[in-house]
Write a protein that binds this DNA or RNA. Structure first.
Lengths: 337, 337
DNA sequence: ACAATTAACTAAATCGATTAAGTTTGACTA
DNA sequence: TAGTCAAACTTAATCGATTTAGTTAATTGT
């Protein structure tokens, strides 16, 4: 072990100045009851000694951590990184810190992450339940009376705040848009068939077709992994099927990107010859080539709303649970002209 | 304020069992000197009362936070999210937690983030200096004797551990590869002209040309923003210039993605008709269309190495600074057949 | 000029876990 | 049977900032 330089504490500053620690503490916090001269003396001495505030001590005493926990399923998916990005920004603007954990869609790891957040006494928690999570798994949060907000994925049976997207409405709008332009053979591509979100998004697609009296073509409903590769392979599959599609509604933007690449590779110009619609409106959507027409329910906004709701929950822990369901709007760009 | 349920502490468990807090603490830590029966009693009572370990208290006492700080410039860039992802994994495997902050390439915000990390008494810090950072800005870390590791971007004049990539060697390999295949008009696309990394990567490109006696063509050296859009626009510019290029070495994978999209849009098949080489080998590179030939220096690996180095630094704070420079290897995929 | 008020500061308890330095108990030894 | 020793526990100090309930000294009002 190395000879640690002695920690500079409030007490050390107080000793140097011949005042009490209370005075030093109040001075540093800019609280009333301290003369201007003393305050300046304290500030200067703190700087001179290289004092660094010890949050662990303050937290213990104040019973607050000034930290918000964020649990995401996945950090390689732009949806969640964009969300993380915006959450970090809001949190930092509030003078709080961000404790990050990811579950890799594993409920077991999620349990460990939740436990860890409780031990850290985070002031609040944002969590997108890993696939396979049961309401009972998160009951511990209610028991511990930890303010938390679910985002993107809800959990029936868990009375909790939630911020999400009106999935069904979104794909409905998109599908109607394509129908109005005369398309009759529209594919729905992407999303794992086990995903609740996919079920909702597909439902909007199906309902729009139904309302228009267009029959659903099974071979044009293609679930796949939520990745560029998934979209790339699925569109090629769709193009080879009979009847083949003249347009695509995608599970989300990532899949749409793959679809676009697949179209290019098949020498079909996405947009001009073949419309593609995504979902989410992640940052890359607008700079893609062609720029992606998509249902705007941007992860950044979801993150912001989630933080907003969480702060509200923290300040009034006993108000009834609130749900914020964002209505996606269709942003028309060149992938659908 | 709500009537908080009384916190369950070690003392509460001790009281219920009629033992001392020391016993409870030792039992929960599985330390020797406690009988098996008592240990089980403690565990059961802890569970029954819903006890949650208070890390703030433990930290204060132990003078360790069991937390590692990670400062990234940007969370929207896959390079950094992949790195964050791998760091999170390593950290969690060590039983530590991850405190995340981003600088948005703003040295001022970086300063605040660093300060925050010090106040949290993180056990160690991984930091990629924001553009414009001076060695003096991070001197505070040395003064505070906080173990830290720089990654991806070094900082001359700061004696510190560093994990990065041999940039020059990478682009040199890539350029030689293209030269060997007969290309004489090779473009170098991407990266901001102010970036040190760009300077290094460009130097490798230039040297390879020089060694082969091929003159550098100024109009084929095109700096641009590190984004899909930047690559997309730059390749179109390059294709219109005289002489126009027959192949491209890109600043990184993101730019290469944009270049590929730009080629598709110009009805040129990337790979088959026009080779494109990226740099970094981010996860998307292998699933792109066409799969990207790139210099593998994956962010996940850099993250892992950085964590490894940091843990080493933590356990021996006074050993001399170490540099880990990863040599990129060319991974040939279809974008360059 | 004396009580009342205010400004400036202090003493000391507090948050909850950890751990060094004891103390007690019982078993085993010589 | 006294002495040794280990096992199983306890006592109490400790980490460092915060904050309540004071105390002191100076200022104001009448």
């Amino acid at each position: 072990m190395v000879s640690r330089k002695k920690q500079i504490t409030l007490a050390e500053i107080a000793k140097q100045l011949g005042v009490s620690t209370a005075t030093v503490s109040l001075a540093l916090q800019n609280k009333p009851g301290i003369s201007e001269k003393t305050r300046l003396d304290v500030l200067e001495m703190a700087k001179r000694l290289g004092y660094v505030y010890n949050r662990s001590a303050a937290r213990l005493r104040m019973q607050r951590s000034f930290t918000i926990g964020l649990i995401v399923p996945n950090l390689l998916n732009p949806f969640f990184t964009e969300l993380t990005n915006s959450v970090e920004e809001r949190i930092e603007a509030e003078g709080l810190s961000l404790l990050l954990a990811k579950t890799s869609e594993d409920p077991h790891r999620q349990q460990k992450a939740v436990q860890s957040m409780l031990e850290y006494r985070v002031d609040g928690l944002l969590i997108c339940p890993a696939i396979g999570t049961r309401a009972a798994d998160l009951q511990i949060l209610l028991d511990a009376r930890l303010p938390f907000v679910l985002y993107t994925r809800s959990l029936k049976g868990l009375p909790a705040d939630y911020v999400g997207t009106h999935n069904k409405k979104g794909t409905q709008i998109a599908t109607e848009f394509l129908l109005k332009r005369g398309h009759r053979r529209i594919a729905f591509i992407g999303g794992l068939s086990t995903s609740l979100t996919r079920k909702e998004r597909f439902a909007g697609f199906r309902d729009a077709l139904q309302k228009a009296g267009i029959p659903l073509i099974d071979t044009l409903n293609i679930p796949c992994e939520t990745s560029i590769k998934g979209g790339y392979e699925s569109i090629q599959l769709a193009l080879r099927s009979q009847p083949n599609p003249s347009a695509v509604v995608c599970y989300n933007d990532i899949v749409a990107f793959g679809v676009i690449l697949g179209l290019w590779a098949s020498r079909i110009a996405p947009g001009k010859e073949f419309p593609v619609i995504g979902f989410d409106n992640i940052a890359d959507a607008s700079i893609w080539s062609p720029p992606l027409t998509t249902l705007s329910a941007p992860p950044g906004l979801i993150g912001q709303e989630a933080v907003k709701l969480l702060l509200k929950r923290i300040s009034s822990p006993d108000s009834p649970p609130e749900k914020v369901i964002l209505s996606p709007t269709l942003v028309v760009r060149e992938s659908c002209t």
